[in-house]
């Protein structure tokens, strides 16, 4: 099940960069192409690289199905709660935009270089959806690897 030393070294070198790139995509979701779904999928790919390159029993200590499903549920709940908080006027109201507080800077209309501190609830929802997607895909990978291992054991 364990891959060769070359693959393990390369994946140990690469996975922090993959995680940071995924985080970058999630955080800059309201400025550049990408967003929660894409960045979450990239982060889950980094976890999948580690889980596939090493044996699952080596990483079982810190990549567990419970933690990943907790991340998924937290992301979905944060998304829905952020949507409900705009219920003063309507569901999914962007109640943080142009408010002057966190993520509430004004955006000049037209072409501008972009400011990370804008977007209202969009960055919050991007983070929530990224957390949810990373948890969901990670749970799928971990369960399938568990199932594969059980099948090998029962086959002999």
């Amino acid at each position: 099940m364990k891959m060769s030393k070359i693959v393990r070294t390369q994946s140990g070198f690469l996975y922090p960069f993959i995680l940071i790139f995924g985080l970058y995509i999630v955080i800059h979701g309201h400025l550049t192409p990408g967003g929660g779904f894409q960045g979450g999928a990239v982060i889950a790919t980094g976890f999948a690289l580690v889980v596939v390159a090493y044996e699952y029993k080596d990483v079982r200590k810190w990549i567990t199905a419970n933690r990943l499903s907790l991340a998924e549920v937290t992301g979905l709940l944060a998304f829905i709660i952020t949507a409900y908080l705009g219920l003063g006027s309507t569901f999914f109201r962007n109640w943080l935009a142009n408010s002057g507080s966190i993520f509430g800077s004004r955006v000049p209309p037209g072409i501008n270089p972009g400011n990370l501190n804008t977007g209202g609830v969009l960055p919050v929802m991007n983070l929530a959806v990224g957390l949810e997607v990373l948890g969901g895909l990670g749970v799928i990978i971990v369960y399938m690897l568990n199932y594969l291992k059980r099948g090998e054991e029962s086959a002999g």
């Binding site: 979701g29 309201h30 400025l31 550049t32 192409p33 967003g35 999914f92 962007n94 935009a97 142009n98 509430g104 800077s105 004004r106 955006v107 501008n112 972009g114 804008t118 977007g119 209202g120 609830v121 969009l122 929802m125 991007n126």
Partner: peptide, 13 residues
Amino acid sequence: SAANNIVTSIVFD
């Protein structure tokens, strides 16, 4: 929606 990315502001807002 105070965001430069129109696609994200449509999808999330």
